[in-house]
């Protein structure tokens, strides 16, 4: 790490600052499931953020006309397009379940070791299962788009 904690405060910036204790950096801790899901939650959130561009493009194309809409369909029908939409589906559903887990914690439940592990595994497996379910339905309904 090359750094000692707590760090010495910079005297030049200190006027009325109180020296607060600093927590050790992430790298100090043993890797856990809840840590991994915390990072995945943030990563999927950021992915969904930029994924809204695809949603907006699709809606604008539908409002623009047949040519613009055909372009979107050509993209979502391509291998790369399908991969992105598949990834978007998983990011959305994982973020949903992982987020519901956070709401449970916000209400003060699920903090026991067994409970938080169960909630985290549930979000991870549930997200993948729901994604597959949606895509199976999509292929059944659309006949492979």
């Amino acid at each position: 790490m090359g750094r000692t904690w707590p760090r010495k405060p910079l005297k030049s910036l200190m006027t009325t600052r109180i020296e607060r204790p600093l927590s050790p950096h992430l790298q100090t801790y043993r890797w856990t499931l809840t840590m991994a899901l915390s990072i995945i939650h943030r990563a999927t959130g950021v992915a969904l953020y930029f994924g809204t561009l695809l949603l907006a493009w699709w809606l604008i194309a539908a409002a623009s006309g047949p040519g613009a809409y055909a372009n979107v369909q050509a993209f979502t029908g391509s291998f790369i397009g399908r991969l992105i939409v598949f990834g978007y589906t998983w990011a959305l559903l994982h973020h949903l379940l992982s987020g519901l887990r956070h709401l449970v914690w916000d209400l003060g439940y699920g903090f026991k070791a067994s409970e938080r592990e169960a909630l985290s595994w549930g979000a991870l497996i549930g997200g993948i299962a729901l994604t597959l379910l949606v895509w199976i339905v999509a292929y059944t309904v659309g006949g492979g788009r």
């Binding site: 194309a61 006309g65 047949p66 809409y69 055909a70 949903l96 987020g99 949606v134 999509a138």
Partner: peptide
């Protein structure tokens, strides 16, 4: 978060309804 959680099921159904349709059908 609660609002999107409640709306996600109908939104997914809407997107599934649009699969395989052309612009006129989607519109």
């Amino acid at each position: 978060a609660v609002a999107t959680a409640l709306l996600i099921a109908p939104v997914v159904v809407i997107v599934l309804m649009l699969i395989g349709r052309n612009q006129a059908g989607a519109a």
